[in-house]
Simulated assay, not measured.
Amino acid sequence: MRVVIAPDSFKGTASAAEVAEAVASGWLGERPDDDLVLLPMADGGEGTLDAVAAAVPGSERVPVTVTGPDDRPVETAWLRLPDGRALVELAATSGLTLLDDLRPDTAHTTGFGQAIAAALDAGATGLLLGIGGSASTDGGVGALQALGLALGTAVPAGVTGAAVLDHVPPVDASTLRALPPLEAVVLTDVTSPLLGPAGAAAVFGPQKGVTPDRVPVHEDRLTRWAACFPDVDPTTPGAGAAGGTGFGLLAWGAVLASGATTVADAIGLPDAVAGADLVVTGEGCFDLQSAAGKAPTVVRALAEARGIPTALVAGVVEASVDGFALAASLTVIATQTTGEPDDALRDPLRFARIAGARFARAQDA
């Protein structure tokens, strides 16, 4: 058999490459003669830069030090692509995993904007901007300030992140840096609008530490932010991504695109899938949001279009797996193996190998 293994990262526990290698190891232990193609995936969030760097010959990591979401310096990199464009990953500059403690009011996207500015300073002719995994609900105001946005009112010293939105409108967008010639394409993994019950504050705020009683406060802040740019539609699918950073980048003039689809094209996944007998994908938590453009759904769609079955491996499964030929939850496997479901978080690669072995054995059933 020829098997393509293309999981996303298991956020905070294992990279996409590590998961792919673990599944492959388990598979080969049962079927050592099969042809396995490992293509770690991403959808704009954590691991996007790594996935593209591994798959695009001639790409180059360019080191940069930025201000992290809690003001500590972060040593990271952006990716220079052979065609002159730059890939910048928000998770690596302003991401949730960079925090020791959640900071719902003060975490910010300044570092993301600084890395974008560094890429432009280095002559990037276009931008691919992965925005999953944000630590903040600041609407991207930190990033835009780093790109030159001026606020029309004074912000008290020490005020950062979503709290900055208490001091808008107005803003002066005329001071923003110009877009590069090949534009800025935003890679997003969600289709949420900026505001409302499906928006940035209500859906994603709790992930960033926003308590239920504070959701209306953040909703009001983002409403004020939307009023700064009356020509930008806050209901645009993806405007609510990354705590509203999607909207902020739309206000800059960027365009939104499916992160997983763009990454899949960049790493050559459609061609690889075309010759496969089975495709394995996955992510840390497969839930209702997964159907809104996250990597496993995009990978499955590519396989389905070619009549190829797909298997899912996930840390936890919280949504229907109809449409997958096989599915494995690492939490369930851990419970069956050790009696401790939390072992799936402590050692996900051990149970990913077991999942790979089970998938392989299923081919002989």
Rank of each mutant, 00 (worst) to 15 (best):
G161F: 02
A352T: 11
R346D: 15
A146W: 07
E21G: 10
A272R: 15
P270N: 04
G240F: 07
T48N: 09
G246V: 08
L28E: 11
A124S: 12
A291H: 12
A157Y: 02
L250F: 03
T262Q: 14
A119Q: 05
D8K: 10
D287H: 07
T106I: 00
C285A: 14
R103L: 15
R177S: 02
P230E: 10
A118W: 02
A77R: 02
P169C: 08
R358F: 04
L326T: 07
L288K: 03
T76D: 04
W252M: 06
T67C: 12
S258Q: 06
G140I: 04
P104K: 07
A242W: 09
G323R: 05
D100F: 02
G259W: 01
L179H: 05
L269Y: 14
G152A: 08
D343N: 14
L194Q: 07
D189M: 11
V56M: 08
A91W: 01
A328M: 04
T97F: 00
V168R: 00
V321K: 09
T106C: 02
L147M: 14
P237R: 11
L256W: 02
A154R: 13
A107R: 04
P193F: 06
D50V: 07
D138G: 09
A360Y: 01
E21M: 13
L127D: 06
D213P: 00
D101K: 05
T76I: 07
A178S: 14
I5T: 03
A328Y: 15
D71P: 00
T245L: 15
G323N: 08
L349E: 14
D342M: 15
D121M: 13
T262A: 15
Q336C: 07
G123Y: 06
Q363T: 15
V168E: 03
L147W: 04
G132Q: 06
Q289A: 09
A16S: 15
D70L: 11
G238T: 01
M41K: 12
